[in-house]
Nucleic acid binder design. Structure first.
Lengths: 196, 196
DNA sequence: ACGATCCTCTACCAATTGGTAGAGAGGAGT
DNA sequence: ACTCCTCTCTACCAATTGGTAGAGGATCGT
């Protein structure tokens, strides 16, 4: 078979947890979607929580990979910020469940937040150092790099994922809409970050 | 009694739905917290969903009030943006469940998104017009006001509510931390919006 | 032919879920 | 004394939840 049952379960779980949410997705629903029995799922994973953790682990390493690929390119200044925004948007379009899962994990009640941040802490540190370096070199407006990173995170993830808000605001959620949002977001960030 | 049972139920529901989430909060849990029986809750509200809708209605009008109060002041340009950010932060500190509920409603699966946007649509329109006016007057950098509004929304709500992310990034979630975040956010937004 | 291992299944289970039916307490108006 | 209305309760229910126990089929090396 092209894909093992275990992989299929993880795929379906990522989709479901990243869109509908963890709490509302029952094992039965997951199993039905896959055309198998709930007990088959519980053969591969000891509990529902364990599935979630496995999904988070896989999603986190996918995310980290995206960032590390871009970091390895060694681009500097605002061009690097723009490149990362583009990559996040590509991810949001191609695999919206991935960013949806991030939002699910970062909810107040979530248990797996530490699991996620264990993966992402290195790239957060790296991003902070990057911002600090670029500020020192005068290629970026000086400010607190940690707080700036938080603002950047919120803005990019929000614009990329808040589809319901956009719909409510009357903004198209088509692919063209996504491109327009990305373009506007990059203009917005460039304006905020350009050195004086 | 100072507060009717109905009001107490709505208060507890707002807190629970805005922090733990709608799906994971059972009627029994709500009732236990209030020291009453679940059936008492169902006397005041026909169903669990109806409670949610009532909570959304109340929260929405509270939110709208905050915006309308500030809009009535007739401040212009970036000072008005700053004033609104400050008000949102005050809300995030005093009543974090309110913004938490917004995030709950704007989740992909939510049924009450239209209910919320029915309340908020007027202030969105007003905000868009405001941005357009300020741009035309040269008090703000020109761009697509609708997209800009989305970016502003994402950034402000994100920085104000993503406490788990901040904790994972090692940022303090104390009151002092909130003030620092607000300050940095305002600097960030001013830089992004200042006319060239 | 053999057991061993891997995988998926049927059959259950206790706990929890949202919701229904209706009793009964208390006060207000007559 | 009477009924009516408001409110909270006990008792119950069918459906769904995550999870256990263990049977049975396939495929493997021996």
């Amino acid at each position: 078979m092209a894909e093992s049952t275990r992989e299929r379960i993880l795929d379906a779980a990522l989709r479901a947890y990243g869109t509908e949410g963890f709490a509302v997705t029952s094992l039965d629903a997951l199993a039905t979607e896959l055309g198998i029995r709930k007990q088959t799922i519980l053969y591969y994973f000891p509990s529902k929580q364990a599935i979630f953790e496995a999904v988070v682990d896989r999603a986190a390493s996918d995310l980290v990979k995206v960032f590390e690929e871009q970091a390895a390119r060694g681009v500097g200044g605002l061009d690097q910020v723009e490149a990362i925004v583009k990559r996040v948007f590509r991810l949001a379009v191609r695999r919206p469940q991935l960013l949806g899962l991030i939002r699910e994990v970062t909810r107040p009640g979530s248990l797996s937040i530490d699991r996620l941040s264990a993966h992402t802490a290195p790239i957060f540190d790296r991003a902070r150092d990057f911002l600090q370096r670029e500020m020192d070199a005068g290629r970026m407006r000086a400010s607190d790099p940690e707080m700036l990173l938080l603002s950047l995170y919120s803005t990019v993830v929000g614009v990329a994922t808040e589809l319901e808000v956009q719909r409510a605001m009357g903004i198209s959620d088509s692919l063209r809409g996504a491109v327009a949002r990305r373009q506007e977001l990059i203009r917005f960030l460039r304006a905020a970050l350009e050195p004086v």
